[in-house]
Write a protein that binds this DNA or RNA. Sequence first.
DNA 1: CTAATCTGCAACCAGGAGGTTGCATATGAA
DNA 2: TTCATATGCAACCTCCTGGTTGCAGATTAG
Lengths: 115, 115
Amino acid sequence: MSAIRHEHAARKLRRNAPVFAALGDETRLTLLTKLCGGLPLSIARLTESSALTRQAITKHLGVLQDAGLVRGVRRGRENLFELEPRPLDEARRALDGISRQWDEALARLKSFVEE
Amino acid sequence: MSAIRHEHAARKLRRNAPVFAALGDETRLTLLTKLCGGLPLSIARLTESSALTRQAITKHLGVLQDAGLVRGVRRGRENLFELEPRPLDEARRALDGISRQWDEALARLKSFVEE
DNA sequence: CTAATCTGCAACCAGGAGGTTGCATATGAA
DNA sequence: TTCATATGCAACCTCCTGGTTGCAGATTAG
């Protein structure tokens, strides 16, 4: 039986909860898309195109950093933030896993009905 | 320039914020993995293996349903919940998009440095 | 040196999230 | 009918989240 693999995938998925939580906010998703350009951006730069306060943006960056989605490095008086793609890939693969399990389950159920 | 495609992907990503928010909780991820089996499960069944109250589970199912990740259908005195795979796929594709844009951006930056 | 800029820290606030309890209601079984 | 089961609704509580303002410190520009 694939019960073991199922439990493994479940744990893998659950482990990504903080990443999904960090992604569950439009402001943070907007920040990520800005950092997708590849160039590290300062807090001030990231605040420019937003209606929110610098402090709000700072907090959002903190959430993203705690989730491992972003990394901040100090340069002079500014704090440059850069995207960290690995957690994103892992989350994507976790979603892959659940979709695959769903498909397999449906296939099993279908073949069971047809016999 | 691919600025248009970039903005399109950004909007697509932002649209999935509620889905990610719904995924950002271990209890709800556990519920999803249980529903991955393909068989619709009642609230009572989903509560059995949990330390939480039935009411708590009900609320979590409500969140998942509002995000479109799950669909509840009444059968007799029980409410059976079933996974809805489409939003998951869409969210996965949105993550794909941001990863791809990151890779492309790095490639551009690299070729720019090398010239 | 002085002024402008970028950031960090702390306090504060409103509202929502997660959870519980209690009670009412609908349905299935005997 | 009568009892057990499955659910829904509402009130309540605590804690976290998203956001603000004010001020202080560090760094760069002139």
